[in-house]
Simulated scan of single mutants.
Amino acid sequence: MGELPRLVATDLDGTLLRSDGTLSTRTVEALGRITAAGVGVVLVTGRPIRWLHHVYDQLGEPLPTVCANGAVVYDPHTDTVLRADPLAPELLAEVVRRLRAEVPGASFAVEITDGREFRHEAGYEARWDYGIPTSREVGDPTELHAAPAVKLLVRAGQQDPDAFLRVVAGALAGLAESTHSSYSGLVEISAVGVTKAAGLAWYCARHGVDAADVIAFGDMPNDVPMLTWVGRGVAVANAHPAVREIADDVTDDHNADGVAAYLETLLGTAGREVSPDSDAAHR
């Protein structure tokens, strides 16, 4: 460390957010300080657009967001999807066909309309989307692949997430991207080449930022492509072993404000290098 990056990219759940889904005052203040120092901040998450307002409300101001594991780049200030890379209906149909053949008890859901709407079949547990207007159970399973989807989700009861991912990825090799970010056996499927790294790379290219000038934070396997693409990848202490293995640094647990702690240290170090008497060095 010692020099500020041009951009900070951070995952949300398990990384920036605490276990109860909240942002601490310390974290909000650290993000404000890094922004005031001239560093951009972008959120990079598996979440869909419809789950972002809870985070934006806590931040006080919305931040640009790469959603759906890189499939959607969203400008919340104008409520505009800048880029979307969905699974085409015919591809969705083939993915579902293969997984029904390979995975006993598989049930599916899709994120459509750039992730603003959610469709699921009867056997799929909706959880966060249960009972909300943008969520609907389909009567005919073919409705799941009637429209382009930025993400397909598959469950098959409670599963070891890493083992289940290997099964799904093996069945879909060369056809689609598979990853996970949960401990309950939920696998998230995107179009080939769609990852958090790809979405962030598109955003960075749009703003003239090189990968070497980006620091990113994450905790789960869906963060691995992003953390290996950026100049410095940082895992929170609660991160999945696959994330800790590839990370350049490890910061504190997400419940201990690990991202904020890292940014505070970065700001302090950079400030001292500029001038021991500068305001930044004493923040």
Rank of each mutant, 00 (worst) to 15 (best):
V103D: 03
V150F: 03
P89L: 11
D114V: 01
H145R: 00
H53I: 02
R83W: 07
I112K: 03
P76E: 09
D162L: 06
Y124W: 13
A84T: 15
I49A: 04
L92F: 03
E188Q: 08
F108N: 04
V167Y: 00
L91S: 14
R116E: 07
D160N: 15
S135C: 09
N69Q: 03
A101P: 04
G70W: 05
D140M: 06
T80G: 05
V95S: 07
D85H: 11
D75M: 09
Y74I: 12
R97M: 00
E117R: 07
Y56P: 02
D162E: 14
L175A: 04
A173L: 08
V167I: 15
W128V: 12
A84Y: 01
Y124G: 08
G46V: 04
Q159C: 09
E61D: 01
L99H: 02
I112V: 15
R47P: 02
G70H: 06
D57L: 12
G170I: 13
L186M: 10
V187S: 03
A176Y: 11
P141C: 09
R155V: 15
A163M: 06
L144D: 07
A122V: 14
T80Y: 10
R47D: 06
L144N: 02
A84Q: 14
H53L: 01
R100G: 04
R155C: 11
E94D: 15
D114W: 04
G70P: 02
F108L: 12
G115A: 06
G105W: 09
R47H: 03
Q58W: 09
P133T: 13
T113E: 10
R98D: 09
H145L: 06
G174L: 06
D129W: 03
P86K: 11
R119A: 12
L82H: 07
P64K: 08
V66T: 06
P48N: 00
G60N: 00
